[in-house]
């Protein structure tokens, strides 16, 4: 997009790399600092004379401490269960809905799609309060299943929109070809369409999983005991109540973002593609 003489082109190249370098430091710098803090000795973190940048020795003591001395393993397990149930709920109902919105032309299609967008406008508190009251009367309060159901209320619409974009990318005559070969519509969906859209389905699922894993506000309100509390709530409560030392806090932070970073690294290409599909057509 930059047009001009060779000299000005070289100049813009240098400028581009300078801007990118700034953003790399801005985006990743804090994470590097978190990682450094998590492997520093306590005496390197809390010093008498200013900030010590490079650790004098590397220790994994903070990781051992947060894993063995707190209920971090339980918090992790609870988060994993909640995220898994959310994924299952979204996949089982959302896959068919996304397919219908993408491939079928029925009355009310636009209204319903718009409705899914409007759900995003609802303040979290507006959903949390009634869900709290309803779940308390159903005995779902403070359970992983209840929390997963609450997550589904805002993640299912996103799941459907994202996955619909991936279905939209498939050629129109795919099902027709399958049906000429004797498949039912269900057969065409199961044998032809779903296998073709599996990367998109994976990226969409990972996006929902990351959001469920990270969620804080609903979990804070809807869980009250260690039995179902997720790690963001648990970590925040430890910081507030027990004045968690910075080293342990950093170790906990690094541990909890490892699954996110790995999942994002695996599916980033299709995920970026899916998230921007609407923008390109826009």
């Amino acid at each position: 997009m930059i047009v001009g003489s060779r000299r000005s082109r070289q100049l813009t190249d240098v400028l581009t790399y300078a801007v990118v370098a700034f953003f790399l430091i801005f985006a990743i710098g804090p994470l590097v600092w978190l990682l450094l803090t998590s492997v520093k000795l306590e005496s390197d973190i809390v010093t008498s004379e200013g900030v010590r940048y490079w650790p004098s020795a590397i220790t994994f003591e903070h990781y051992r401490a947060i894993w063995a001395q707190t209920d971090f393993p339980t918090l992790f397990k609870n988060s994993a269960v909640t995220s898994s149930v959310t994924i299952v709920l979204c996949m089982v109902s959302g896959t068919f809905a996304a397919y219908a919105f993408s491939r079928e032309r029925f009355q009310g299609r636009h209204t319903l799609l718009l409705g899914l967008l409007v759900v995003r406008m609802f303040p979290a508190v507006m959903m949390i309060i009634p869900l709290f009251i309803i779940m308390r009367s159903l005995g779902l309060l403070d359970s992983s299943a209840g929390l997963a159901i609450a997550y589904t209320s805002f993640l299912l619409p996103i799941f459907i929109w994202l996955l619909k974009g991936f279905f939209d990318n498939l050629p129109d005559d795919l099902e027709d070809a399958a049906r000429i070969d004797g498949c039912t519509r269900l057969g065409a969906l199961g044998r032809i369409v779903l296998p073709l859209v599996r990367n998109g389905l994976l990226a969409t699922t990972v996006f929902v999983a990351i959001n469920a894993w990270n969620e804080f506000l609903f979990a804070l309100m809807l869980t009250t005991s260690a039995g179902s509390r997720t790690w963001p709530v648990g970590l925040q409560l430890m910081i507030g109540e027990f004045q968690l030392p910075w080293g342990m806090l950093s170790a906990g932070g690094i541990l909890s973002i490892i699954p996110v970073v790995i999942l994002f690294a695996i599916v980033q290409r299709s995920m970026v593609h899916g998230l921007t599909a609407g923008a390109v057509k826009g």
């Binding site: 804090p30 994470l31 600092w33 978190l34 894993w213 990270n214 804080f216 963001p232 970590l235 925040q236 910081i239 806090l249 950093s250 932070g253 909890s256 973002i257 996110v260």
Partner: peptide, 8 residues
């Protein structure tokens, strides 16, 4: 996660 971002 915002919990990690905020505390970091």
């Amino acid at each position: 996660p915002k919990v990690v971002a905020g505390n970091m």
